[in-house]
Nucleic acid binder design. Structure first.
Length: 288
DNA sequence: AAAGCGGTCAACCGCTTTAGT
DNA sequence: GACTAAAGCGGTTGACCGCTT
C-alpha cells in the first residue's frame, strides 16, 4: 500500500552552510546533466539536502554568470529607482541587473539602500539616466573578467574569510564588480564605451525585456500607477530613445555543445544555464 | 584580551503560483 | 474542478565578522 506523501518518512536533510565538497558535487552534476527536477538532484548527487536548498544554492551562488562583489553606484540607482516603482519585487528588479540575484539585491537593500533610500527623497528624475548609464558602464572593459573555473569560485566560508573584492565595503563605490561571463564592448565615435545596441534594438522582436517593453509603450504608465520618471516614452516612440536604452547580446561559442554559436538575450533574465547543459569548457568571447 | 554590539550575507521558512494528472 | 508536486518568491533567521568599549 502506497503511503500518502504526508505519511512518507522524511529523509534527514542537512542544513546550514554548504561545504566545498557539496558545492563541487552540485556544480558538477548540474553542469553535466542540468538540474531537471530539483527534487531529484539530491537523490542523484547523494547530497543530504533538499531540492529546494540545492536550487537556491545553484541560483544564488554556483550558477555561472553571477557577478560577485560590490554593487556599483549605477546598480544601486537602478535598485532604488525600480524599488520606488515596483516595491519589493526583488526577482523583477534582479532581471534588470544581470548577474545579480534577487537574494543579493534584497540583502543589499536591507543593508545599505533602505537607509539611503529613506534619506534620499530626490532623484526619481535620474532613474532612467542611471539605468541607461549603468548599461554603458557594464560594458567597460575594466569590468570584464571571464568566468573562473568552477573550482576557483570561493566557498561561502572562504568568502567570509577572504572576500572576492579587494576594496573595503565602505570604500569608494566606483569600484566595479566582477563579471563571471564576459560582457561585451562597443565604442562610439568618441571612443566611449556603449552597449552594442543599434540595429538589433530597432527590431521590435528584441524587446523581450518586460521593462524595456513597458518603457517603450504606454503600458508602463498604466502598470505602475501612472507615474513614470525619466524619459517620456509614453508616445510609444521606440526609435531613438529606445535604441539608446540598451540591447545587447552575449555570444557564447559553445565548442562542445553542438559546435554552434549561441546568442543569448543578456537582459531577458533567462537563466542561461537551465537552457542547456554547459560543457566543461565554455569559451566566452567578446562580441563587438 | 574579551565581551558586547551591529552589520552583512547565506540559507531557511512558509506562502503563492504554476504545471501536471 | 480537485489534488499534488515543483518552482518561485519574499521575509526572516542565524552564523560570522569587524569594530568599539
Amino acid at each position: 500500500m502506497a503511503l500518502k506523501s504526508s505519511e512518507r518518512p522524511k529523509p534527514k536533510h542537512r542544513k546550514g552552510l554548504w561545504s566545498p565538497e557539496e558545492d563541487q558535487r552540485l556544480r558538477n552534476y548540474v553542469l553535466k546533466h542540468g538540474h531537471g527536477c530539483w527534487s531529484s538532484v539530491p537523490i542523484n548527487t547523494g547530497l543530504q539536502r533538499n531540492g529546494k536548498s540545492c536550487r537556491l544554492r545553484w541560483i544564488n551562488y554556483l550558477r555561472p554568470g553571477l557577478k560577485r562583489g560590490m554593487f556599483t553606484v549605477e546598480e544601486e540607482e537602478i535598485i532604488l529607482s525600480l524599488h520606488r516603482l515596483i516595491g519589493n519585487k526583488w526577482s523583477q528588479i534582479a532581471k534588470h541587473l544581470p548577474g545579480r540575484t534577487d537574494n543579493e539585491i534584497k540583502n543589499h537593500w536591507h543593508s545599505y539602500l533602505k537607509k539611503r533610500g529613506a534619506n534620499k527623497t530626490e532623484s526619481s528624475s535620474s532613474s532612467l539616466d542611471a539605468y541607461h548609464h549603468a548599461q554603458s558602464q557594464c560594458t567597460n572593459s575594466d569590468n570584464v573578467e571571464s568566468s573562473p573555473p568552477p573550482d576557483q569560485i570561493p566557498t561561502s566560508k572562504e568568502r567570509k574569510e577572504k572576500p572576492s573584492f579587494d576594496l573595503p565595503r565602505d570604500g569608494p563605490r566606483s569600484f566595479l564588480p566582477k563579471v563571471f561571463f564576459a560582457e561585451w564592448l562597443n565604442q562610439d565615435d568618441q571612443g566611449n564605451d556603449v552597449p552594442n545596441y543599434g540595429a538589433a534594438f530597432d527590431d521590435r522582436s528584441n524587446l523581450q525585456d518586460p521593462l524595456v517593453h513597458d518603457l517603450c509603450t504606454s503600458d508602463f504608465r498604466n502598470s505602475y500607477g501612472g507615474e513614470y520618471v525619466g524619459n517620456d516614452l509614453s508616445n510609444g516612440s521606440v526609435s531613438a530613445s529606445a535604441s539608446d536604452m540598451y540591447s545587447s547580446q552575449l555570444k557564447l561559442e559553445m565548442d562542445q555543445v553542438s559546435g554552434g554559436d549561441y546568442y543569448l538575450d543578456y537582459f531577458s533574465g533567462d537563466d542561461i544555464c537551465s537552457q542547456f547543459n554547459m560543457g566543461s569548457d565554455v569559451n566566452v568571447t567578446m562580441y563587438t
